[in-house]
Design a binder for these strands. Structure first.
Lengths: 343, 343
DNA sequence: CTGAAAGCGCTTACAG
DNA sequence: CTGAAAGCGCTTACAG
């Protein structure tokens, strides 16, 4: 029942353990015939390299880390993470690399967790998510010399490779679409203002509207929760000059907005068009179903894994631009039918 | 920049590496004064044990594994996993144990993944989720002698400890509640029939109704998806003798049921009461908000981690019964107001 | 092409 | 109470 070691294989094959190691790792120094025999024996014995032993001599853990820094009760109904992780792993597994996961409440705890993993040599590299505009983690990781991939825009102040998609273009598509429908009073319910992601979308929102000679009807910062989405929508819809279209930075808030509109007697899409900045099943579960910016999150995870693995293999750090989210039009957005509609 | 080893500490302290190891691990054999000095030096140098080295000599990885066997597109909007994992980790971290995660499509791939981790000695133990009534994994893990904790009912045919809660009691509470409201035609939209969880709930449903002299109005198996929930509800509500109350095995299907009822012009809760078998934010996001069986999922994860850690520490395998889910009553369920209402 | 040996950084019996 | 040494299971220069 004891798991076999290269020693056992060497004995059975009548060669040295060095030869076994060379044969199993495809390195020169063993005749083809011997190599074949060794591999056959290893397979037959169900041998797998002891990760600790290999890690110790290679100084490589064949493991990467992912820390999610968010309050546990915020780990909500967004399917993003599970899908992203699933994509990550499908790639990591191909390279026999494992994924270590931890959930912590904030950036300080994240650095602490990563520092421990790194000091214990449990990980070779790291995936960094939810980047802030001012994000102390980036400099800290560079100081610690931890190979890392940023999930988000490349940073001008950092050499760490990033995997990102063009949020600005996606927001522009949304704005162009809504303006094309005749909307002129368009509001934005934004996510956490500290996130770089949110800043980029906000700026793109202004710029896209400006191209049409328009200004934002309003931009409201939130924390992504249902409650914040509901509150923001209530504020917007009970205002004098209420918007005819609202974009929400995620699906949960868009759903909250839809729900508030119904309560206030504002017809969606008749009087109010809604577009969600994240797509998920939730958008199809409500009525009317929500138009949303949609993307392949699993592919995003896969590309992130590939970028990190390349970095760990000693390749030049290179950022990767993932596909831009595309607008998926559903029932929550239609042409403006108000008095000031262009004719 | 090189990370310090016990060798560096030993040199600085002027002692042998053995003494350092003893001091740092709180074992006897070092004088109190020396011990203090060594610990101070280690702290100052930011030393942390190399996990590979320790793992190799201890034959213990200080890591446990969790494999989620489900199709990637099913990794839906249920917050259950992220919450459970977050609970798991808060405990594991206290014991300096890491969590390895993998997502695979089915049981065969799960066994393959676990087998690889185990053969490579990457994990000391395992958490097994989503148990089936007939589950080949249980026997396989016992054959492989992998320490594992089952998330679900203890198995009569296995010595593996389980962490579970009394689903039957929770279902009975739901039935008693609905019957108490005057409902006599109560249907159940069940989850995956292969899951032991589903079987137990189904049986409890029959038994609880029988105690009131009633029979199930219907029991429909599904795959937990929105679509299946919608289809089942449509079937139930367009039937001649339609139920006045439906229990759904999760929140997503309950939401689908609510949506279908609205489309069919069946008033909730006026003509139909709905109870969800899983609670989540989703239940509060719809109108009327859904009554649901609610539980502390993070605590469930914490207790699972504790049970596994105890097993790894050589304690006798002992199952743990977690708190029973409690019915949280919201707007989707009210007293029956039909013609056959008891007076 | 092959074998014998050192080394990765720990833990842990074993002598003193 | 302390030190010197073997061993965990690999990889990898280094001689032959």
């Amino acid at each position: 029942m004891k798991r076999p070691t290269i020693n056992d294989i060497a004995k059975r094959a009548g060669v040295s353990i060095g030869a076994v190691s060379f044969a199993l790792n495809g390195r020169p120094g063993v005749s083809l015939e011997t190599r074949r025999r060794i591999i056959a024996i290893a397979d037959e014995m169900g041998w797998r390299p002891n990760a600790a032993a290999r890690g110790l001599s290679e100084s490589r853990a064949h493991t990467v880390g992912l820390v999610l820094a968010r309050p546990a009760d915020t780990l909500g109904i967004e399917p993003f993470f599970m899908k992203f992780i699933s994509g990550l792993e499908s790639q990591l597994t191909l390279s026999r690399t494992a994924l270590l996961l931890q959930v912590v409440p904030d950036h300080a705890k994240e650095i602490e967790a990563v520092g421990a993993w790194w000091a214990e040599r449990r990980i070779d590299g790291l995936i960094v998510m939810d980047l802030w505009s001012e994000d102390s983690r980036v400099a800290t990781l560079e100081t610690m010399k931890i190979p890392a991939v940023l999930v988000g825009r490349p940073r001008p102040d950092s050499a760490l490779p990033a995997v990102w998609s063009d949020d600005a273009a996606a927001v522009a598509e949304t704005v162009d679409y809504l303006v094309g429908l005749g909307h002129t009073r368009i509001a934005r319910v934004a996510g956490l203002p500290a996130l770089e992601h949110t800043r980029v979308r906000g700026e793109a929102f202004r710029v896209a509207l400006a191209r049409h000679g328009l200004e934002p009807s309003a931009i409201i910062d939130t924390d992504y929760t249902w409650e914040a989405g509901a509150e923001a929508t209530t504020f917007l819809l009970t205002n004098r000059q209420r918007p005819t279209a609202i974009t929400f930075d995620n699906d949960v808030m868009a759903t909250a907005g839809l729900s508030v509109a119904r309560k206030l007697g504002v017809n969606v899409p008749g009087e109010l068009s809604i577009v969600a900045g994240d797509d998920s099943q939730l958008c199809e579960m409500v009525y009317p179903p929500l138009s949303a910016l949609s993307r392949d999150v699993q592919a995003y995870g896969m590309n992130t894994a590939r970028t990190l693995l390349a970095l760990l293999d000693g390749k030049e750090p290179a950022s990767y631009q993932d596909a831009t989210a595309r607008l998926r039009i559903r029932g929550s957005s239609v042409a403006r039918s108000g008095s000031d509609r262009p004719v």
